[in-house]
Amino acid sequence: MSEHTEHHIVPKSLYYLIFLALMVGTALTWWVATIDLGMMNNVIMLAIAVTKATLVVLFFMHVKYSSRLIWLAVGGSVFFLLILIVLTLNDYLARGW
């Protein structure tokens, strides 16, 4: 059985590294929020949050080492989330009232 096991054991050191990156990201997003950058505040805030979420999905949730079927499910959820958000805002932001 062991010769064809597909499960990949992620080294613990990588988990510690991801943990550190997530903590740094949290501190960074707090610090950036105290500086008034106008619309850029939102862009940076979301960029940091998306980066943190991607790290969690790829490494803590093992998607990086998962089958293409799992990739499809994860990618599909992001795709439909974007449809939900973009098409809704496309309506609300484009209204003249």
């Binding site: 997530l22 949290t26 997003t29 707090w30 929020a33 105290t34 500086i35 008034d36 505040n41 939102n42 805030m45 979301l46 940091i48 949050a49 943190k52 979420a53 969690v56 999905v57 803590f60």
Partner: peptide
């Protein structure tokens, strides 16, 4: 955890300045 990663900036940090 991921949900909270988005909730924290969107709810707590948008009025800091």
């Amino acid at each position: 955890d991921i949900v909270w990663i988005f909730l924290f900036p969107l709810l707590y940090l948008i009025g800091r300045h």
